[in-house]
Computed example of a mutant assay.
Amino acid sequence: MDKLSVLMLSWEYPPRVIGGISPHIYFLSKYLAKQDIKAYVVTCDFPGAPAHEVIDDVEVYRVDSYKSPSPDFASWVYLMNMNMQKETATLIKKIGGKIDVIHAHDWLVANAGIGLKHIFRKPLLVTMHSTEMGRRDGLHATGEKMIHETEAWLTYEAWKVICCSDYMINHVKYVFGLPNDKLVMVPNGVNSHGYIADKDCQTFRSKFALPEEKIVLFVGRLVYEKGIHILINAVPKILSKVNAKFIIVGSGYMKEQLLNIVRSMGLEHKVLFEGFLDNDNLAKLQKCADVAVVPSLFEPFGIVALEAMAAGSPVVVSDTGGLAEIVEHDLTGVKVYPNNPDSLAWGITKVLLNTTYAQSLRNNAYRQIKEKYDWEKIAQDTKRIYEEVLGEYSKSFWA
């Protein structure tokens, strides 16, 4: 009997890293391969990355992402999907049509995924990592409405819609009016093996902070829904109680606005905007941080919190979305009120001023990571969903 085969579509995959989808695809495909699944990943090309390579038994194909000038991002996405569908169809024919399931990740590959579903009459699954309505707190502009309609079309065409938290299950059900039996929850995961503790991180941390300064770490896009402005507004309140250095890792459209706020407070020496850090340096920083902060206003899951917990950094998070499910207050982290600088400052200082409490959070969080968010378990759950879908598919007219 041939092994089960899955085709994954994503606009990002390492070394192309835009957000959390890239590492998600990398680890999920890797651990599916360990479950004796033949995994193919089709993604966009990237300078210096080969068009085809095998990574941990996963076949990775990088296709032409359309480099000619486009009038706007939406047009580029449409043209990229045309290229992805065309080149993936050629690939599927080349391997004799041996694809059992098509698994698309988010709206950016919707057209390609839906087209391939109908060309080859194979079941389509989609993982909805987020929604435009959630990211924008409503639909305000034409582009946002276009993305929303694309997401709705993708969830309609999908055999199953996978969400990474119970919060996202309810959100997606409400936003797109989906039936219960179409939705399934599989959490995101984290590679805890990538955070082996250093014997001494003092040399590394000295690049960012003085020995007497506590490190408060934020990792994420500098955009409204990530709540970075809440943290910046909380900085003076925290500094009034504890000597700290705030390290901001990430980029986004709010950067200049945030820099101006920091300058107006005269705190440039206390808030460092580091931009993008490679995985090794980011992991070291997460291990050295005294507290990691995730003050999101909208968060489908909260992979950044999970990574911090795996690295052994105590976390302070907004009590919202998937974060509320990941973190147990006073056990594996601290929950604070969303969009509330006073509450955020309270949570951060609570961790920084009590080392025994912070160590307890570290220990409990790491134990939870190993029990609930291991990629091997997540791959097993995903394989089970594939098998259930194929069982239904085999009895349907679609087959």
Rank of each mutant, 00 (worst) to 15 (best):
D106M: 12
K98S: 14
G250D: 02
A358M: 02
I114R: 13
T382P: 09
E213F: 04
G143H: 08
F204T: 05
Y393F: 15
P236Y: 11
A365M: 12
H105T: 13
I147G: 00
V17K: 06
L125T: 06
G189W: 07
E212F: 12
M8F: 13
V186G: 00
S396M: 07
Q257R: 13
E149M: 08
V101N: 03
V242H: 12
S130K: 03
L239W: 07
V42R: 05
F273D: 01
G266L: 10
Y66T: 00
W346G: 06
P23A: 05
H329I: 14
G347D: 07
I99H: 07
L217S: 04
A345I: 12
S68K: 14
Y61C: 00
D100G: 07
V190H: 01
N243T: 15
A234H: 09
K145T: 11
L125N: 01
E151W: 09
T155K: 06
M80G: 05
I119Y: 10
D2W: 00
V294E: 05
I95L: 05
V184D: 03
Q359Y: 08
V262E: 06
L259M: 15
V101C: 03
P187M: 00
E225I: 03
T332C: 06
Q286S: 05
V216T: 09
D64P: 00
M265H: 11
V54W: 01
M309S: 04
D280A: 14
K395T: 14
V109K: 07
S296A: 08
E149Q: 12
V172L: 07
P23F: 02
T43W: 06
H193Q: 12
C44H: 09
R62G: 11
W107Q: 06
K98G: 02
I162T: 01
S10Q: 09
G333C: 09
Y26I: 00
H229A: 14
C288A: 15
Y337D: 11
I248P: 08
A112W: 07
L4V: 14
A399T: 10
V315C: 09
A379L: 07
K98D: 15
V161Q: 03
G48Q: 04
